[in-house]
Simulated assay, not measured.
Amino acid sequence: MAERYSSFTPGGTGWFFQRLTAAFLVVALAFHFFLLHFVNHAYEVTFLGTQARMENIGYLLTMILFLVTAAFHGVNGVYNALVNQGLKGTQKKVILAVLTLAGLALVAQGTYVALVMGGMI
């Protein structure tokens, strides 16, 4: 039988945060899906409605936390999948740097858009 390999150390910090963010994303995605597909149907979702929702500080903070959590979960997952495929040495460091910068850029841009939509900038 093939040996199981994972770049995550069971019980380690990376392993813990990957699971913690997954749990949060399930809840946040359910909230997001319920609000934008059942409370407000797709045809009712408008730019002005989005602005109105983002003006609610609780909603704004939830969506920013959703963005940060999703970015971390995605970047961490892709990085560890590549490490599991045998990424090593300089390539591993370069990929980590590129993914980290891409994740930070995504969070910065998304936060900026959320703040503008919420009328805070």
Rank of each mutant, 00 (worst) to 15 (best):
Met1His: 10
Glu3Ala: 12
Glu3Tyr: 12
Glu3Asp: 11
Glu3Ile: 10
Arg4Asp: 05
Arg4Thr: 08
Ser6Thr: 12
Ser6Asp: 15
Ser6Glu: 05
Ser7Asp: 09
Phe8His: 03
Phe8Ser: 00
Pro10Gln: 01
Pro10Ser: 03
Gly12Thr: 01
Thr13Pro: 10
Thr13Tyr: 12
Gly14Asn: 09
Trp15Phe: 13
Phe16Gln: 04
Phe17Gly: 00
Gln18His: 15
Gln18Pro: 01
Arg19Pro: 01
Leu20Val: 14
Ala23Met: 11
Phe24Asp: 00
Phe24Thr: 01
Leu25Tyr: 01
Leu25Phe: 04
Leu25Val: 00
Val27Ala: 11
Val27Tyr: 03
Ala28Asn: 02
Ala28Trp: 06
Leu29Val: 06
Leu29Met: 12
Leu29Ser: 14
Ala30Ser: 08
Phe31Asp: 04
Phe31Ala: 04
Phe31Gln: 02
His32Asp: 09
His32Leu: 01
Phe33Pro: 00
Phe34Glu: 00
Leu35Pro: 00
Leu36Asn: 06
Leu36Ile: 00
Val39Thr: 10
His41Met: 07
His41Val: 04
Tyr43Glu: 14
Glu44Pro: 02
Glu44Lys: 11
Glu44Val: 03
Glu44Phe: 10
Val45Gly: 03
Val45His: 04
Phe47Asn: 06
Leu48Gln: 12
Leu48Arg: 12
Gly49Pro: 13
Gly49Phe: 09
Thr50Trp: 13
Gln51Cys: 13
Ala52Gln: 10
Met54Trp: 09
Met54Ala: 05
Met54Cys: 03
Glu55Thr: 08
Glu55Gly: 15
Glu55Ile: 02
Tyr59Gln: 02
Tyr59Asn: 03
Thr62Tyr: 06
Ile64Lys: 02
Ile64Phe: 03
Leu65Val: 11
Phe66Ala: 01
Val68His: 02
Ala71Met: 10
Phe72Thr: 10
His73Ala: 08
Gly74Ser: 11
Asn76Glu: 15
Gly77Ser: 13
Gly77Met: 04
Tyr79Thr: 02
Tyr79Met: 12
Tyr79Glu: 08
Asn80Ser: 07
Asn80Asp: 04
Ala81Leu: 15
Val83Ala: 06
Gln85Pro: 02
Leu87Arg: 08
Leu87Thr: 07
Lys88Tyr: 13
Gly89Tyr: 14
Thr90Trp: 15
Gln91Ser: 14
Lys92His: 12
Lys93Tyr: 08
Val94Pro: 06
Ile95Val: 15
Ala97Gln: 09
Ala97Gly: 13
Ala97Met: 13
Val98Trp: 12
Leu99Cys: 10
Thr100Leu: 15
Thr100Met: 11
Thr100Ser: 15
Leu101Trp: 14
Leu101Ala: 15
Ala102Phe: 14
Gly103Met: 09
Gly103Trp: 15
Leu104Asp: 07
Leu104Gln: 06
Ala105Ile: 11
Leu106Trp: 15
Leu106Val: 10
Val107Thr: 09
Val107Met: 07
Thr111Ile: 11
Thr111His: 09
Tyr112Asn: 06
Ala114Lys: 03
Ala114Asp: 08
Leu115Tyr: 12
Leu115Glu: 07
Val116Ile: 10
Met117Gln: 12
Gly119Met: 07
Gly119Pro: 14
Gly119Trp: 13
Met120Trp: 08
Ile121Gln: 12
